[in-house]
Structures are given as structure tokens and as C-alpha cells.
Design a binder for these strands. Sequence first.
DNA 1: GAGTATGTAA
DNA 2: TCCCCTACATACTC
Length: 547
Amino acid sequence: MSNGPLIVQSDRTVLLEVAHPDAETARHELAIFAELERAPEHIHTYRITRLGLWNARAAGHEADDMLATLDRWSKFPVPPSVSIDIRESVNRYGRLVIERDDEGLLVLRSTDAAVLAEVTKNKPIQPLLIGHPAPDAYVIDAWARGAIKQELLKIGWPAEDLAGYTPGTPHPIDLVENGWHLRPYQHTAVSTFTGGGSGVVVLPCGAGKTLVGAGAMAETKTTTLILVTNTVSARQWRDELLRRTTLTEEEIGEYSGQMKEIKPVTIATYQILTAKRKGQYAHLALLDALDWGLIVYDEVHLLPAPVFKLTADLQARRRLGLTATLVREDGREGDVFSLIGPKRFDAPWKEIESQGFISPAVCYEVRVDLPEGDRLEYAASADEDRYRLAATAPAKISVVRDLVARHRGERILVIGQYLDQIDTLAEALDAPKITGQTPVDEREQLYQAFREGSIELLVVSKVANFSIDLPEASVAIQVSGSFGSRQEEAQRLGRLLRPKESGHTASFYTLIARDTVDQDFAQNRQRFLAEQGYSYTILDADQLAAA
DNA sequence: GAGTATGTAA
DNA sequence: TCCCCTACATACTC
């Protein structure tokens, strides 16, 4: 404790001085248990939340480690109230345990009689308990394993679930490591997951989440249901599994709108699980179609709310969540924690980057002025028109032109959200464009040409968010985004983070109209990136033109 | 059936 | 606040 980069405040927020020489090291240690809340230029704000502490605890970090981090990097003494609070919160995890008794019944057990008395008195929890065979144990209704974990988390006493899992139907699966191997961090992720049985692995885009899934499958060797966000991702999983494991085409099925195959390894979309007919979930049978021993949730931060409900009933099956971020826009992180499982592994992006597995990226925010006439119109506009006016500021076109010129020779993506803006840009830059209206085969052709390099500049709409990988892109220019969704930001940056042969540093530009809602939304977006250790540099459009 | 067009949900 | 995109279901054509 002396002149460190952190200030720990008694309201459980932690300020990080970005320019401090130890800032990056401190940030990595802090990010284990604190969440980034605001990331303006000089001082970043982290918040220590219970959920963050419990996730850290479940990943094997002790309260002493966390307190040591704060003490080591703090400029002033850590307020005693915060230290005490952290210790108490961390120690709340694991005080309650869900396990099987000798007869195979599901029981809630605690050596702490007071805690047990408190939680079992709770209104929503009481009806889930159907017996009290011993002073330290209550029998839980067999179907309520998920529900009780949700309720316990809500009242601040998360239970550690040690009740085990159904083995599922065994199925031989092995990795085929010919000429490649799981990377060390992937190995660690797989083994911590299989040790814990259920939980979430957090890895940045491009760090090989699919291989962690494949590794987990090769460890558990059982029939597996893989849930993904869209059909493109389903195909990618399928191809990757065929390439990296002993699984053959006959053993991998796709269960989607187009195909309804059920095989020992089945890949399904979230959408099909949530599809309803006559008010009933139409494809629930999929969840019991085979005796799944493992369920993989790809992009668990995008899990639709109804799937949580279904997952509450699947607590006896092993669950692996994969994601680049645990942050959800809807605040259901707690459901991920109690229903999928706690975080088992988390690799900071910067660390993987420094090991050379994904290429480094630099982020810039470029501020442009609205023209005088538009400023008046902006001021007079209703809120709903303002965003569009700011996002489509004409000055952005010349900035894009400058940036494109500056990165000549690299593969460049220009990303926008409004179709007419995309039309204008494509025309101004004389570049091909891809929108939702572009027919699928034309899209494929353009993507292919971009990958091969015969096209170096592509203007795209939101299609690019969820569709195919464009690993060759090393520059992205975001002209307009939507309402500051961090997910979207992550997706877009993820496009640039694949390891590249060229060794180019990837650049990510966000164009912002000064003094508008545009700027407010942008701040929200930055947050996510700063959390992963990226710095945002703010540039002025005029400076840029001069440089 | 396979392929296409249209509507709906999130 | 709306815009954009995707996936699914259904109805229709050949």
C-alpha cells in the first residue's frame, strides 16, 4: 500500500487510475472479483458485487487473495468496512450445500444451524422442502433443484451444488490431436470444468471456445446436446467437431428449423427450444429425446429467458456454458450463476493476446461535429429522431474515407446500422455492400472475395454481427451502432481478433457525433472493452485528417 | 418433398 | 425509441 493505482471506496467501488504504471497488472487481478462499471478516459470504476465475489470463490480464489490484491495496489488504506464485507460475502458461498443422502434423496445441508434455519423459513423456499430427516438437513423436492438454487441466490445464500449428475448414455468421443494440441489455457478450462461438473468458461472470441467444448466432450464421453444461437454457428460447431474429434457425420445431428435430426451429438438452436405452438413449447421433447450426459450452452450471455426456465429442470445433467462475457443486458447474471453454474475459468483477453493466440487490437473513438444546421434540428428533434440524426452525421463519411486511405492494403470492414447510410457510404467509397437484402449467394461471393483479398473494403449492416467469420479483416470502422449494447461491441471486435498471418495490429474505430446521444451510447459500449483490458483512445476528426 | 414467399417474435 | 437481422412456421408452387 503506497502510491498504487487503486482507490477503494467504502461504497464498494474501486477507482483505477489508467495512466499509472501498475494499472494493467492491478486491473487483471481486480477483474477476478470486481466488475467494470464505467470506463471514461482517466479513471475507471469497478464495483465489487456479491455475484462477482461468489464467482471468484467458485473459481478457487479465497477472500485472502482478493483482499491482498486490494491492499497491494491501493493508494490509501482499504476501508475496514469493505474488507469485512468482502470476507463475509465470500464466506457465504459454500455454507449451504446441495447433495445426495444415503438413500439418494436430494438434501440441503449446512453445518451452520442459524443459516439453515434462516433460509428454510423463507417463504418461496419453504414449499420446495419436503422433509427434515436430520438437524442439519432438509429434503428437497426432486424437481426443485434449480428453483431452490435461484431462490437461495436471491436471498444471498448461494448453495454449492454437489448432488452430482446423471452419467448419460456413454458415447465414445476423443480428440484427434494430429499436428495440433489444446492450448494450455484450453486444457485448464476443460479440467476445471470437468472437476466442477457444471459451470461457465469465459474466453474471448477467437480463443477457441469450441475446442473447450470438444475437450469437455472428450472427457465426459457421453451423448451431448449443444445449444447455439444460430444456424451458422451450428454448422461451425459441426465442422469443428468433425475435424477435431473422432465423431463422424453419422454421429452429429442438427436440430433446427430446417432439420430435425437427433443423434448422439445433437446441435440445436435456442430459437427452436423457445418456439411455441398453441401456447406450448413445441420442441420440449428434444430435451429428453436422449439421455444427455452433457449440455453445452454456446454464448451463454445470449441465452433467452425461456431457456432458463427449461434449464431449471435439467439440473441433473452436466452443463457447460461458454461465453466471452458474463455481462447480460437484462441483468440475469444471477440465473446463469444458479442454473448453468458458477464461473469455472476466466482468461483475461490481454493475457491470451500476450501469448500470441489472438492478435492485438487497438480501439479508437473518433469524434466528429454535427453541421450547424443539423445541430439546430437535433436540438429541436424528439428523442427518437435524435439518435438517427447523430448516428448518420454526414461528417462521418469523410472520416471513413480518411481512415480507409490510412489503412490501404489491409482488409477493412465498414459497419453501420441504417440501410440508407450504408447505401451512401458504399457509393461514396465505391465499395460493395452487404445488407439483409443481399441474396445469400451474393453474400457468400462477396465474403469469399474479401477473404481471398480481391475485395479489400466491404460495407456491411448488422448481418455481419451474427453471420460468418471474416478472420482476414484487420480494420473495422463502426459508423453507427445500436443503443450501446456491449454484446454487439464484443461481436464486432471479435471479428478482428483471429490470429492473422500478416501480423497486422487490428484497429477498431467507432465514429461518434460530438455532444449528442451518440456519445452517451458510446460510453456504454466502451465499458466492455475496457473490462477486457483494452484502452480506448479518443481522437478528433480534424486531428485525424491532419495526421 | 423441395424450394419459395410471407408473417411473427425477440 | 425504432431499426435491423435472424430463425421459425405456414402456406403455396412445382
